[in-house]
């Protein structure tokens, strides 16, 4: 008996140790350190349900251990016949009623929170963003404003932002673990959810519904900045001149190459609500390339030369002429210079 319990205990100790080592996960990615309204609502229920369940678990394990210690067949008991008990009304009623009460304790706040998070009656008074999920990138169209972004969603802290989400292809699911739980992005109907970030920062967003080979690379970022900075950023985005010539010669070549190689047939610089490919207006400010690579020129050149090797199954592969190393390099230079605002993921992350 001791061997069994010993192994069980060491197992738990090992798991606990692993947890301590790993902490609660990476800040601004983990749901265990909530930094937004939805995530906090979920966390409250996670904690409540964990406490209730741990109580049940402790009771079960207590009885279990007592049973195994007291009632094991010992030497000399080979012929012992225990009393054949049919049941016990009182006991059975007790372990029916108590779970019902425990479930009710959990059910009431669950229902309250469900209705609270689904409430979109005041949506029109807040910022609304039309979100489109695509294989394998996200498009954000700020309702009432004349600009769009892709992959980086800027929001002001302390305000509700309503996301009206629709998919252009298969089902996706938008998840920003530290800020809010997830909601599916369906192709047939707009799903609305609101998010609210408490603190400035750059938060990881993920796709949580299997959407094809590069499902795991469909990351995006939420850039939460102060309301003043947000207003500044909106102004910067609105005053972008998409036709502006870059300063240096390489980037000018890049702009020419960008136009020659029919990049514009899918990508837009400046406002274009119907986006086939990601909007590149503020590409130079983006926190990541392709959603998950560090924003270095080398990564961008690699992406332009062979996107398939980086994001299998993406829709860019094969839809543009093959680029020479020089062309890719100059296009990269041009794109990296598209930096319309001082408000960037870097400034928000500080």
């Amino acid at each position: 008996m001791r061997g069994w319990m010993g192994k069980f205990k060491s197992l738990f100790l090992l798991s606990a140790l692993a947890l301590v080592l790993a902490g609660c996960g990476k800040e601004n990615l983990t749901a265990l350190v909530p930094k937004g309204y939805g995530a906090e609502s979920s966390m409250n229920l996670i904690i409540l349900s964990t406490i209730i369940m741990l109580f049940v678990f402790v009771v079960v394990i207590l009885v279990y251990v007592i049973v195994l210690i007291r009632f094991r067949r010992k030497k000399g008991q080979e012929n012992y016949i225990p009393k054949q008990v049919e049941g016990n009304k009182t006991l059975e009623t007790v372990w029916t009623i108590i779970p019902i009460i425990l479930v009710l304790i959990l059910a009431v706040p669950t229902v309250a929170a469900t209705f609270d998070l689904a409430d979109d009656s005041n949506a029109s008074e807040h910022i609304n963003v039309d979100v489109t999920g695509n294989q394998y990138w996200w498009h954000f169209d700020y309702a009432g404003e004349e600009f769009q972004t892709s992959q980086d969603l800027y929001i002001p802290t302390g305000e509700k932002v309503y996301l009206n989400m629709l998919s252009s292809d298969v089902i996706h699911s938008l998840w920003i673990p530290s800020i809010s739980g997830k909601m599916d992005v369906n192709p047939e109907n707009v799903n609305t959810m609101y998010i609210e970030a408490y603190e400035e920062g750059v938060y990881w967003g993920k796709c949580a519904e299997l959407c094809g080979p590069s499902h795991s690379l469909m990351d995006f970022k939420v850039i939460a900045v102060s309301p003043e900075e947000y207003d500044q950023w909106v102004e910067d985005m609105q005053s972008v001149d998409p036709e502006a010539e870059p300063q240096d010669a390489v980037a000018q070549d890049g702009k020419a190459a960008f136009e020659e190689n029919s990049c514009m047939s899918c990508h837009a610089i400046g406002s274009s609500p119907a986006a086939v490919g990601p909007n590149l207006t503020n590409f130079g400010d983006r926190s990541k390339i392709a959603g998950f690579l560090d924003p270095t020129k080398k990564n961008l050149v690699d992406w332009l030369m062979d996107p398939e090797s980086i994001k299998p199954g993406n829709k860019m592969t094969g839809n543009y002429p093959e680029l020479s190393e020089d062309e890719a390099s100059s296009i990269a230079e041009y794109l990296m210079q598209l930096q319309p605002s001082e408000i960037t993921p870097e400034s928000a992350g500080k």
């Binding site: 749901a31 939805g38 995530a39 609502s41 979920s42 966390m43 229920l45 996670i46 349900s49 964990t50 209730i52 369940m53 479930v103 959990l106 669950t110 929170a113 469900t114 998070l117 699911s173 673990p177 809010s180 739980g181 997830k182 909601m183 949580a208 519904e209």
Partner: peptide, 14 residues
């Protein structure tokens, strides 16, 4: 049961 709590499930789901 924890998963059954719908709002908590928004985090657990998938």
């Amino acid at each position: 049961v924890m998963l059954g709590s719908s709002v908590a499930d928004y985090q657990y789901h998938d």
